[in-house]
Computed example of a mutant assay.
Amino acid sequence: MANPLWLRSFQALVEQGNFTRAAERLDLTQAAVSQHIQRLEAELGLLFIRRPRRLELTPAGHALLDYLNERERVDQRLTQRLAGDLDDHGEISLMTPGSIGLAIYPRLLALQKRAPGLAIRHRFGPTREIVEAVIDGKVEMGLVGERPDDASLTVSEFATEALELVVPANTRVETFDDLMALGFIDHPDGKALATRLLSRRFPGSPGYARWPRSGFTNQIGLILAPVAQGLGFSVLPRFAREAFEDQHAIRVVEGAPEVSDTLYLIQRAEWPLSARAQRALSVMREAVAGADTAL
């Protein structure tokens, strides 16, 4: 690859937007930065379009910037892995579905507060993206709602999460018509989750397409806000319901049969979890179990 000094000049020029500020940032002359860019462009092609008062990256410039950003991420992961197997220092990276994420993220932040040398990098995502991120090494571990069939992964059961029918606290619900009178608060997984639960609780009842809808949100932490206001009912996983702040304003309608999903922990098979990830995993299990054990 090109001379590292030339690449530093390229990055500084992208960040600063002009040669003068880039040179000041690098403590070089403007002529030196210009020469570095010229040598890069001799190897890689035109990187910048020079316009009055601004620079615009060409496709080749964007490609080089993407390469440098990815190399920086790889270097960071390598540094973390070689830093020593410490449980109080380094990055803890994971991806989860939204519901379980609401349950574990506050506990992980509490862990970080006790061990400031840790950095929590947590993302929400669907199963497909989580599996890809773990396989590609973008995160160290993930939780998914479907058991992946991939030999490169180690998969273990993490928790069981029940689906819950949630209504306003003071609302009486005995029949399916009582729910329809409220209206459904929908969300991205609403059709799948509610159909699975209500088709078993109320056999023979009309399907999703015929339900009146009282609202929709794609923010899992807000699904129960309209329910708490008496505006409808919803169906969502238990951990999402437990994370809702105003528990007094909602009520779970108990019934049979129960419908639950299994959550699976996944990691790369050939990479044992770091000590910090194992510590985080212990905290995550406590959160799921509802334990009050100190972090």
Score class of each variant (00 low, 15 high):
126 P>T: 00
171 T>C: 09
64 L>N: 02
13 L>T: 05
194 A>T: 04
198 L>A: 01
221 G>Q: 12
52 P>V: 03
114 R>V: 11
187 H>M: 09
53 R>C: 04
213 R>S: 13
240 A>R: 00
152 S>G: 09
64 L>C: 04
19 F>T: 08
263 L>E: 01
218 N>L: 12
184 F>T: 00
28 L>S: 06
111 L>P: 00
68 L>G: 02
58 T>I: 07
263 L>N: 00
108 L>Y: 01
201 R>C: 11
232 G>P: 03
98 G>R: 05
100 I>C: 03
179 L>F: 06
34 S>G: 10
146 E>A: 12
69 N>Q: 14
30 Q>N: 09
268 R>W: 07
68 L>V: 06
183 G>I: 08
52 P>I: 05
235 V>D: 03
87 D>K: 06
155 V>Q: 09
13 L>I: 10
258 E>F: 10
212 P>M: 12
80 Q>D: 15
177 D>M: 09
67 Y>T: 13
203 P>W: 05
74 V>L: 12
22 A>K: 01
141 M>E: 06
40 L>S: 01
202 F>P: 04
164 E>F: 02
145 G>A: 13
293 T>C: 10
171 T>P: 01
114 R>W: 07
112 Q>M: 08
146 E>C: 07
61 G>Q: 03
176 F>D: 02
228 A>D: 07
105 Y>G: 02
60 A>G: 05
96 T>W: 02
104 I>G: 03
150 D>S: 07
214 S>G: 15
127 T>N: 15
15 E>G: 06
288 V>C: 11
113 K>I: 10
207 G>L: 02
210 R>K: 14
